[in-house]
Design a protein around this nucleic acid. Structure first.
Lengths: 359, 359
DNA sequence: ATGAAAGCGCTAACAG
DNA sequence: CTGTTAGCGCTTTCAT
């Protein structure tokens, strides 16, 4: 009875509308030189038959692939997923990416690529050859990996670098890390804190440096010292524990800590607890990321919210528009915001000794 | 100087190896009828040139597309992402899907499809036409949407139904919801609880019913009554608040609640707090999902962990193996586990009156 | 403004 | 065992 459902091709539409293949193609791609009357007829045929162009065929004929490829760090992403750390970077990326892509008839695909591996080029090259994306989105720490950016540039594939402000090929986007750190630090200074420490991320990430810079600038603005108040972690929990202890060992009078990731902030919270310090009474805490879990910690964490979805969305838009013409050295900045919760409070009353010291 | 980098095609490899296109194709696809000697020569050429087949071209020539498409509920997924509820279903799906796909040279793509929309068929049909996936993974509540399963069956696309045990086309997989609910309930009964309530999910989801069934069976096993102890929510927080209050209003002596989602469990926790009930001293709580946030609530929640990654992985494997031959009525079950945390404890001492009642 | 022809990179179906 | 011949569905030329 029911015949085998054959795929509806452009040929079927052409036949139905009584025009040539080419005309249908023109209509589908909003091409010029089609009389409105013919256009409508073709549109009707498309609707009637439920025709949708095959991505593969479109790609084959040398046109666009309608695919944007987002590259993430394989090791870190898999670890986050397996340990169920609650990191929702990928989710936010998909939120921004999917929606914006679909608005333009594009699809987003995700690829996990090793950072440390010496065969990054092979891995990425294979993905590029197989998928032939129209654009690539690089996330830290890949954004400034010279092997990767060179490969992309060489192949002539437009790409966006999230978390990079370096000049060179590709669209650079940041989430205003320097400003965000400055904002957080200034807020703490405004609460009367004088010893504001920072647990920074690894230097491999440019944004780690920007955050340190913002912190230093805010400290300087407030006439405060940064001496001995900087520790570096790797964004992970364990490194946060180490950094937290080191910081508090060295600065018993430290009353505020900014951590460059939620995991390190969680660690700092635990360190404080272990040392009998109450957050926020004795110690204020601000984290970066604002992943879902920080709303549930005790106390809920004040955090810098990274506008990941919005940033990825912007990246996609530029990629699709093929903004190669855009200034090579322009950096797009989508500013982060501070979300105040219960981990920050006025600095504790200073002891007379401490007061004397600050004079 | 540097010529424009042309894509390496099968033709280049054939030339390099001094064989025909078809032979290269055979080698690439592990086809038969190739002398080891020739095979090695071709392999060498492939390695030398860094050849990777174009997905689009492979698809075009009528063979496989090497794409598995995972379909998720659009509205719910976007809301989860936007509100940053910490739901990591998609992440777990990607974890299982990406890894298993890549082991077989496949890619996983994700598509968000509306449930309520009357144009589900158009939406999904468009995705299928554009992508022409070799297999589709349906997640609840799409898994038992007749419009969707019929469309897939009609187009002859292999698909997996996660969270469905109905017979019919497509591979059915469940995460042992009945057993999981039974396990949770039995555990609570073992802790001395006599009034164990359940906040179920919406009936639109088969798994909601399974969980109720498991709860009922365990109650019966323990000689307990289910009367007035069942409320239904929609998996969301607000519905959990309503259900929690209704439950406790009606059953002041209720000492344990099983919630069919983390969000509803969170709500129940808040309801308990609002009523001056201590968890777990006065009320024990077990949730379904075990998303990252439940480790950070006060107290951390005992939860049923859904093996999403593993289930998706299994689905992918069957899809790729084209297990159409597999028993149409076989249901693959990947059992969930109970993760004990601090929201469960022995039932509170019963009052003499209560004791008398149970006699 | 429209149509015809050529070909994208690959594999299925045949030949040898 | 290996090579040749057709296309897959679409978009480019290039004609008309």
């Amino acid at each position: 009875m029911a015949r085998v459902r054959k795929t509806v091709t452009i040929r079927d539409v052409a036949e139905e509308a009584g025009v040539s293949l080419q005309t249908v193609s023109r209509v589908v791609n909003d091409g010029p030189n089609v009389r409105p009357q013919v256009r409508d007829k073709v549109r009707a045929a498309i609707a009637k038959l439920g025709y949708v162009p095959s991505l593969a065929a479109q790609r084959m004929s040398g046109s666009r692939s309608y695919i944007i490829l987002a590259i993430n760090d394989r090791e870190r992403t898999l670890a986050d997923w397996r340990d169920r750390r609650g990191t929702d970077w990928v989710d936010q990326m998909l939120l921004g990416g999917f929606l914006t892509c679909s608005q333009h008839g594009y699809r987003m695909m995700v690829e996990l690529v090793d950072t440390h591996s010496d065969h990054v080029e092979r891995e990425l090259g294979a993905a590029l050859s197989a998928l032939q994306p129209d654009g690539v989105i690089l996330t830290p720490p890949h954004s400034e990996n010279a092997l990767i950016t060179a490969l992309l540039a060489e192949r002539g594939i437009p790409f966006a670098r999230i978390g990079s402000d370096a000049p060179g090929p590709g669209i650079a986007l940041t989430m205003g890390d320097e400003g965000a750190a400055h904002l957080a630090t200034t807020r703490l200074a405004g609460l009367g804190h004088r010893k504001i420490a920072m647990i920074a991320g690894p230097s491999q990430y440019s944004l780690s440096g920007w955050r340190i810079a913002g912190w230093r600038r805010a400290l300087a603005d407030a006439g405060l010292s940064a001496d001995g108040l900087l520790e570096t972690g790797d964004f992970g929990y364990d490194s946060g524990v180490r950094a937290g202890h080191a910081l508090l060992d060295r600065n018993p009078d430290c009353t505020a800590i900014i951590a460059s990731s939620d995991q390190m902030a969680l660690a700092a919270l635990e360190v404080a607890r272990a040392r009998g310090l109450d957050v926020p009474r004795d110690l204020s805490l601000i984290s970066f990321d604002n992943t879902p879990i920080v709303r549930f910690t005790q106390p809920p964490l004040t955090a810098i919210d990274q506008p990941i979805a919005e940033t990825v969305s912007r990246a996609v838009e530029h990629l699709i528009a093929r903004d190669e013409n855009a200034d090579q050295d322009t950096v797009i900045e989508v500013a982060a915001a501070l979300v105040e919760r219960a981990s920050t409070a006025r600095a504790p009353q200073q002891t007379p000794a401490a007061l004397a010291r600050t004079v």
